Computed example of a mutant assay.
Amino acid sequence: MGSRNNLAGAYQAAGDLGRAIPLYEQTLTDTVRVLGEDHPSTLGSRNNLAGAYQAAGDLGRAIPLYEQTLTDMARVLGKDHPDTLTSRNNLAYAYQAAGDLGRAIPLYEQTLTDRTRVLGKDHPNTLGSRNNLAGAYQAAGDLGRAIPLYKQTLTDMARVLGKDHPDTLTSRNNLAGAYQAAGDLGRAIPLYKQTLTDMARVLGGDHPVTCTTRNNLASALEKRAVDGPKHW
């Protein structure tokens, strides 16, 4: 079953959800039959299937499965278990993907609080959780809370993971995006430029994340050109 789950994960990583999802479904069925509903491997398998449904855009199946998994993980593993905290983060992300920020944001806030207490404020998962919450605040239009949280996350990621770590580079891109959303192109554009230079050096010029940052910079430059001073 572990090999089948690994193969499904490889298909998903390759973007072949048409083969990944049936394999995840079969793995979950067999895991339940052999190990039982509450076995940690069953819970992990259910989480993986929910993630594949979400990747396929099927939130109608993903969200109930995430909800069930979170309830069972909290009961079986405990509400503070790292896997339970990850499951809660996944559910919050699915709510956000469905546009339900009213449920996503409190769940992100709770997860950040618990990860900070259980894992520590500098744990990579805690830093990721802080970034996710900032993103949810931004999606809700609350840049007054999003930008300081992005700045704090970037500072901590650079200190803990290193300034060239891919997560640090992504965090810098996110902060630039928040500045742009706030109309502060004077801070957004230099940050995009710095991030693009570092991403091209660390990840390569053709890496998807590098390409995304390049597009973000182009958008910000275009916005500045359109909104800049007019000379008659």
Rank of each mutant, 00 (worst) to 15 (best):
G228H: 01
I21F: 09
A134S: 06
A188R: 01
D16G: 11
S41T: 15
L169P: 11
K223R: 14
L154T: 12
P40R: 12
A20G: 08
M73W: 03
I63N: 06
P124F: 13
A139T: 09
L35P: 10
E67L: 08
R115K: 15
N89H: 11
G51S: 08
D16Y: 08
R145S: 09
I105C: 06
T31H: 07
H123T: 04
D142S: 03
A136K: 03
N90T: 03
I147C: 04
N48Q: 10
D142R: 03
L59F: 08
S3T: 12
L43K: 10
I21R: 11
K193T: 14
D58N: 15
Q138T: 04
G15K: 10
G99I: 10
H231K: 15
Q96M: 04
A220D: 01
I63D: 06
D164A: 13
R159A: 14
Q54G: 05
N48K: 07
Y95E: 06
T27Q: 01
A56D: 07
Y150E: 03
T195I: 14
I21T: 12
V160N: 10
I189N: 01
N174D: 14
N174V: 08
T126L: 05
R201E: 12
R4V: 14
H231I: 15
L149K: 06
M157S: 14
Y150T: 03
D227S: 15
G78P: 02
A181K: 00
A218F: 00
G44F: 03
A225R: 13
I105K: 05
L85V: 03
D206P: 00
L161G: 12
L112V: 14
P190H: 09
G15W: 08
R103Y: 08
Y93I: 07
A13Q: 12
Q180G: 00
N47G: 14
S87Y: 07
